[in-house]
Design a protein around this nucleic acid. Structure first.
Length: 585
RNA sequence: GCCCCGGUAGCUCAGGGGAUAGAGCGACUGCCUCCUAAGCAGUAGGUCCCGCGUUCGAUUCGCGGCCGGGGUACCA
């Protein structure tokens, strides 16, 4: 497809130049040549508007279009397709059988690696996402973060990057001390094993308990702070409790990652790096890029980037969030140098990252310019914001369990138990598919409303719709094998002469470019929209046109090959979105 | 106050300088002796927030409003 566009670009530019030459005008309009998709497929496959050349040629766009089309009629060969003028546009029809004959076998030959491209060949990209706290389980916000981070990691890898995904666990600070204090007060030796409660939930429950307790206990907050001081001083009992409770939480969170297909190449703990930024601050003072106040606190002047000023070290010498992130990213770079680093973190921290990147620049790190904050919007509920205090936070495990239950009920209602073999496993995969698609559909920079009822829906523009199309095609391919319909090595693509088939060929051929666009824009959602287009187009085709029951062998074979190509594209795309593939449902 | 993001069908969201602006849900209507009806087809539903500007052309870009969200010099 790309090569056709490149060829036509040359030919059309030459035709316009020739028109200009005939009128004694200097050519130079090539830059204005743009390709679009005509609003309707019967107009053509590619469209080039002639508006931009009207001024240069001093005639109407429609006249230019006819003149250009007339010239192209003689210059273009049959293997290029044909160009026709349609009002102010030059529309191009590609040679369908040729395109199909190159695109479909290519998909089938490349298989699982179809769609890989060279966009980021030789580029090392580190991507940080999830970043849980160890005082409570993951919630809906993390699920959006994880869906974006995991999917983007896969997309970038498909674009040729060497991806290193990292998780920064926020395992220290006042929040975990609050859970610890409540546990000391009320825990009575309870463990995940003794209570049967998942570790992250157990610790989260004590966090909630702390907040209730603190309302009628004036010194609760102060005692939590004392615990933090004791922890920083290395008090053995406190550290032991901290370790124990953190392990519970991490074990629980790992289970959630496993359930959602989230993977990290490295896990960093804030407790191990939180103080490492202090040396950098000292260096900055020496270099004169930071300054010290009378009380001993250290600041950076942000006036050059249009902001105020920011504290880097408190008067008591303790570090703040920014200091920690400075230390963390430097340690990480030294660990494993990168050409780019992407932080998948909520948009409420846009300011934080702007300052962080600027401070690193001040410190002279030449890679500071390669840091990128992929900000995503808040996940709200139809009733409004999620509030942990009001208990309206949607717990990740609960949501997945609920989705799984509904999917299982659906399988039973449709009496598909024997077809799917393992009901629970299939239901879980459908639940994850529904969840991830729902979260990735929305552009990252937008806040989104998570409607539980709607997210539980498995019909329409949803993850399960895509999974269902895969299952249908797969089932058909199985039947084809049963009926001994072999894939002929000499497929006659001329028999794919229906408009629906041509649409599918074009869609399938566009997959690598779509992966590339998703990688370039850090936008997995582009892929989600594309896959829905593919599934919808195939669904119509499949409904209207017999494939393995087509009357002639040559038609059956060609349609089956096209169907297999569609399945391969759906399968590869779903993998990049971290939506489980199902061969039956 | 200042900075960032958003505003598209009743709802949730795509799209994007170019031809009649899309999908799903919801409403209504058809289609299972036929490769899985988690499907397919159709009907109804729009001042693309408002104004000005740039442009041959703006829903898309710029500026100014309005509305909503977020951030804003010691929480992360």
């Amino acid at each position: 497809m790309d090569q056709y566009q490149a060829q036509w670009s040359e030919m059309i530019a030459a035709a316009i130049d020739a028109e200009a030459g005939e009128r004694g005008i200097d050519p130079a309009a090539r830059a204005d040549l743009a390709f679009e998709t005509p609003p309707s497929a019967d107009l053509g496959d590619l469209a080039v508007p002639m508006f931009p050349f009207a001024k240069l040629l001093r005639t109407s766009p429609a006249a230019i279009a006819s003149a250009v089309a007339a010239r192209l009629a003689s210059t273009a060969g049959a293997s290029d397709g044909t160009a026709v003028a349609a009002g102010p546009y030059v529309n191009i029809r590609l040679p369908r059988a040729d395109v199909a004959a190159s695109a479909v076998p290519r998909v089938l030959a490349e298989g699982d690696v179809y769609g890989r491209n060279a966009l980021y060949d030789g580029t090392r990209i580190t991507i940080e996402f999830s970043s849980p706290n160890t005082n409570k389980p993951l919630h809906l916000g993390h699920l959006r973060n994880d869906a974006l981070g995991e999917s983007l990691s896969r997309v970038l890898a498909a674009c040729g990057a060497t991806v290193r995904s990292v998780n920064l666990v926020n395992d220290r600070g006042i929040h975990i001390c609050k859970s610890m204090l409540a546990y000391q007060e009320f825990g009575a030796g309870e463990t995940p094993e003794s209570s049967g409660v998942k570790g992250d939930r157990l610790v989260g429950d004590y966090y909630v308990k702390f907040n209730e307790w603190a309302k009628q206990t004036p010194d609760a907050e102060a005692r939590a702070r004392q615990l933090l001081v004791a922890w920083e001083a290395g008090d053995p009992d406190v550290v032991a409790l901290w370790k124990k409770m953190n392990d519970w939480v991490l074990a629980g969170i790992s289970q959630t990652y496993e359930a959602t297909g989230i993977h990290f190449d490295a896990v960093y703990f804030e407790s191990e790096t939180y103080s490492s930024g202090k040396d950098e601050i000292a260096r900055g003072i020496e270099a004169g890029v930071f300054y010290r106040e009378d009380d001993g606190s250290v600041w950076v002047d942000l006036e050059p980037i249009g902001l105020d000023r920011k504290i880097l070290l408190r008067a008591d010498g303790t570090s703040v969030y920014l200091t920690q992130d400075i230390g963390t990213v430097i340690a990480r770079y030294n660990d494993s140098p990168f050409d780019r680093m992407i932080y998948v973190v909520g948009s409420e921290q846009i300011y934080h990252f702007r300052v962080l990147f600027y401070v690193l620049e001040l410190l002279g790190y030449e890679w500071a310019g390669n840091l990128f904050h992929l900000a995503y919007g808040m996940v709200n509920l139809p009733e409004g914001k999620m509030k942990s205090r009001e208990g309206t936070v949607v717990d990740a495990d609960d949501l997945i369990a609920e989705l799984t239950e509904l999917a299982a009920a659906e399988i039973r209602a449709k009496e598909r138990e024997s077809a799917v073999e393992n009901v629970d496993e299939t239901a879980h995969k459908i639940a994850i598919g529904a969840l991830h698609y729902y979260l990735l559909q929305v552009g990252a920079n937008k806040d989104m409303i998570f409607n539980p009822r709607e997210s539980l829906s498995f019909t329409g523009n949803t993850g399960p719709y895509l999974q269902y199309m895969c299952a249908r095609v797969n089932s058909m391919i199985r039947k084809a094998a049963d009926r001994r319909i072999e894939l002929d090595s000499h497929i006659d693509f001329n028999v794919l002469d229906m408009a629906e088939e041509w649409e599918l060929v074009k869609l399938v051929a566009r997959y690598p470019a779509t992966v590339e666009a998703a990688g370039r824009d850090y936008a997995p959602g582009l892929l989600a929209g594309y896959l829905y287009d593919v599934a919808k187009a195939f669904s119509q085709y499949y409904h209207d046109v017999p494939i393995i029951t087509a009357p002639s062998t040559s038609v059956r074979t060609a349609r089956l090959a096209l169907s297999r190509a569609v399945l391969q594209v759906l399968r590869n795309g779903l993998d990049l979105l971290n939506i489980p593939y199902l061969d039956a449902m």
